[in-house]
């Protein structure tokens, strides 16, 4: 089992950038306390993209927030870039974040950019926080703008004046300026139209090829399938299946994964199997 690439501990080809072991997260206090994540183990290597698929309430966002230190883990270990961050204090977290090792891309680019700040200001913010000088920060931001195929004249505009696709590429550029080793993306293409979706996904692929580790969180298997090396399926707070993307899609083992694959809208299998889905749903309910 341990040699199996599908095993949770398997870290892929490079050095692991993220190692999560037996992560457990609870919300609420005392009687209202409920478990959101249980026994989640996942590791992501340099130059690897891991898709984390789950529906609303499956705990996928909590997973991201735990890795970013925004929620407290009640058990388990988290190692980022070799550093054990499990019991970190606020101050230690801030120092870690300031280094820009881990970054996060939100689903909704409009809401994750300050509407009153010019694009340039948003782009250089992580660098200014690090204490980089303004001129240097602007110069670096421009370099990354080119990497996400955006024009420099966008720098003076406000987020509201950009298209959705441009905005999402700006938020990608913003996380790139600190040269992170790990980027967590929460539904980065869900709000985008086809053309922009393709463009953002291509940028992500290029990033992966340049050695960055990506965790791609989504409810939609389809949007992850094209870029993920491995896929982890999160169901009710537990990872029920981890395997290479192709394996998960073509030979799903868990009932939920099968329903997920059967539910994802596809073009060519348009005459979808309604009865099959009904049967899977019935099995999940038991």
């Amino acid at each position: 089992m341990s040699a199996d690439p599908a095993a949770p501990g398997y870290a892929g080809p490079g050095r692991p950038v993220l190692e999560v072991t037996d992560l457990e997260v609870h919300y609420g206090l005392r009687r209202r306390r409920r478990r959101v994540l249980q026994g989640v183990s996942l590791s992501v290597a340099r130059g690897e993209t891991v898709g984390v698929i789950g529906e609303t309430g499956s705990g996928k966002s909590t997973f991201a927030r735990a890795v970013l230190g925004l929620v407290h883990a009640s058990a388990g270990r988290i190692r980022i870039d070799g550093e054990d961050v499990t019991g970190y204090s606020h101050r230690q977290w801030r120092a870690l974040r300031r280094r820009g090792v881990v970054q996060y891309v939100f689903q909704d680019p409009l809401r994750s950019l300050d509407p009153d700040l010019a694009i340039e200001e948003s782009l250089i913010e992580p660098l200014l926080v690090q204490g980089v000088g303004r001129a240097e920060a602007v110069a670096r931001a421009r370099r990354y703008l080119a990497r996400v195929h955006l024009d420099e004249d966008l720098l003076r505009r406000l987020p509201g004046e950009l298209s959705g696709g441009q905005r999402q590429r700006v938020t990608v550029a913003r996380v790139l300026v600190t040269e992170p080793a790990l980027i967590i993306l929460d539904e980065p293409v869900s709000g985008l139209d086809s053309a922009n979706r393709v463009q953002v996904l291509q940028i992500l692929k290029d990033l992966r090829d340049s050695g960055v580790a990506l965790v791609f969180i989504s409810h939609d298997l389809g949007s992850v399938a094209g870029v993920a090396d491995r896929i982890a399926v999160l169901y009710e707070g537990e990872i029920v299946e981890v395997a290479a993307a192709r394996t998960v899609i073509n030979a799903p083992r868990h009932v939920y994964t099968r329903l997920l694959v059967g539910s994802a809208p596809t073009l060519r299998s348009a005459a979808a199997d309604r009865a099959g889905r009904d049967a899977l749903r019935a099995r999940l309910r038991v």
């Binding site: 925004l70 120092a95 974040r97 820009g100 970054q103 994750s112 300050d114 926080v129 690090q130």
Partner: peptide
């Protein structure tokens, strides 16, 4: 509660910074 403040937080910004800037 907005995401851009959270984004700044994830970049390691302090509360003083967030109040001044956002």
């Amino acid at each position: 509660r907005s995401q851009y403040v959270e984004a700044a937080l994830i970049s390691g910004a302090s509360i003083g910074w967030i109040v001044r800037r956002h």
